[in-house]
Simulated scan of single mutants.
Amino acid sequence: MTKGTISLIALVGVVFAILSSVFIVDERQKALVLQFGQIVKVQEEPGLGFKIPFIQEVVRYDDRILALDTPATEVTPSDDRRLVVDAFARYRISDVVQFRQAVGVGGLRAAEDRLEGILNPVIREVLGSDGVTSNTILSADRASLMQRITTQARARALPLGLEVVDVRLKQTNLPEQNLEATFARMRAEREREAADEIARGEEAALRVRAQADRTVVELVSEAQKTADITRGEADAQRNAIFADAYGADEEFFEFRRSLDAYEKSIRGENSTLVINPNDAFFDYLKSPEGVAERR
């Protein structure tokens, strides 16, 4: 082997050693330099870092805010109305050294499993505490409940080197076995409200009809009264006219009354009266001589 070849191999080895001793940490990461599994250096600032080639290794961790969806958790508020809560958390690695010591080589997956084991009990504890009802969880007060969950989860996650930024409740539903009973109760309540509305409507309709019937009776009674008064006044005027006519010409009055009687008693073409022909009823149907003789 020539000296040139040896020099080239040596140069390549040196370049490789130099490249192996340099690592880059970008702004989204934090890094640990490990030597035989032990932490010898922490690189939290972005930029170039150096390590001993072949002896030391670099482990990088995400420095961004991460999200974790928790599985649905069943909680029992103080009113014993069970709910299924679906939540998610936002967290970040705040202390990479403590994080490495807590989760070891498991990394983020192991950390999320342990964080999930923290969140679920905290959610059940807060939502099941005294004074917290299902209506509280479903109302605007849930914001304060989420803050309580965040505070407690943050304190319990600190030994893992994690900072819990926020915990949010995504969905709050009833368990499947309770849905049908809840819907049945809601239907019964709506039917009862509908029956109450119908009853109130019928009661109002009865009052309106009664008032209308009363008004009709009063109007008819008043009209009948007015008609009777008018009819009585007309009869009085007629009788007065008849009396005046009778006093002025007694014979004409009797003649007029006889004609009215003929008109009322003889109606139609085949009307027949069975009566004594000498009766006074026919005085004005006889000849003038006969009438004079009768008188």
Score class of each variant (00 low, 15 high):
Val217Tyr: 09
Pro277Phe: 13
Leu108Gly: 04
Gly13Ile: 11
Asp63Ser: 11
Gln29Arg: 09
Val33Arg: 00
Arg114Lys: 07
Ala210His: 13
Met1Ser: 15
Gly13Trp: 03
Leu115Ser: 15
Phe183Ser: 05
Ser7Cys: 10
Tyr91Ile: 03
Ala245Leu: 15
Val103Phe: 08
Asp80Pro: 03
Thr226Tyr: 06
Asn239Met: 05
Leu115Ile: 13
Leu127Cys: 07
Glu44Arg: 07
Ser258Val: 04
Ala155Tyr: 01
Glu289Thr: 05
Val274Ser: 02
Leu219Asp: 13
Leu68Asn: 14
Ala181Trp: 00
Tyr262Ile: 08
Glu218Gln: 07
Gly37Val: 05
Tyr246Gln: 08
Lys264Asn: 13
Glu74Ala: 11
Leu66Thr: 00
Pro77Ala: 08
Ser78Trp: 01
Phe281Asp: 10
Phe16Ala: 15
Arg82Gly: 09
Phe54Ile: 08
Arg214His: 06
Asn239Cys: 02
Tyr284Cys: 07
Glu263Pro: 07
Lys286Ala: 10
Thr133Phe: 03
Asn239His: 14
Ala31His: 00
Arg148Met: 13
Arg168Ser: 09
Glu180Trp: 01
Val217Asp: 12
Val22Met: 14
Ala153Ile: 02
Phe16Cys: 12
Asp79Gly: 14
Phe252Leu: 07
Thr76Arg: 12
Leu179Met: 13
Val96Glu: 01
Pro71Asp: 11
Val97Trp: 05
Pro175Ala: 08
Gly47Glu: 04
Tyr61Pro: 01
Ala204Leu: 15
Arg214Ser: 14
Gln43Lys: 08
Val216Asn: 07
Arg81His: 07
Glu163Gly: 04
Leu34Asp: 00
Ala111His: 01
Lys170Ala: 11
Arg124Leu: 03
Lys225Val: 06
Arg28Tyr: 10
Val22Tyr: 01
Ala87Trp: 00
Gln98Phe: 02
Val220Lys: 13
Asp63Gln: 03
Ala210Tyr: 06
Phe50Ile: 02
Val220His: 03
Ala280Tyr: 02
Leu162Asp: 00
Asp86Ile: 11
Leu8His: 05
Gly107Gln: 04
Gln152Val: 01
Ile123Trp: 00
Glu57Ser: 05
Phe242Lys: 13
Gly49Glu: 01
Ser134Gln: 07
Val103Glu: 03
Val208Met: 13
Thr230Gly: 11
Ile123Glu: 13
Ala72Leu: 04
Ile241Gln: 13
Asn276Asp: 14
Phe23Val: 09
Leu48Val: 10
Phe242Pro: 06
Ile9Trp: 15
Val217Ser: 06
Gly37Tyr: 00
Thr5Asn: 10
Arg64Gln: 14
Arg238Glu: 15
Glu269Phe: 05
Val25Arg: 12
Pro121Asp: 09
Glu203Ser: 15
Ala140Phe: 08
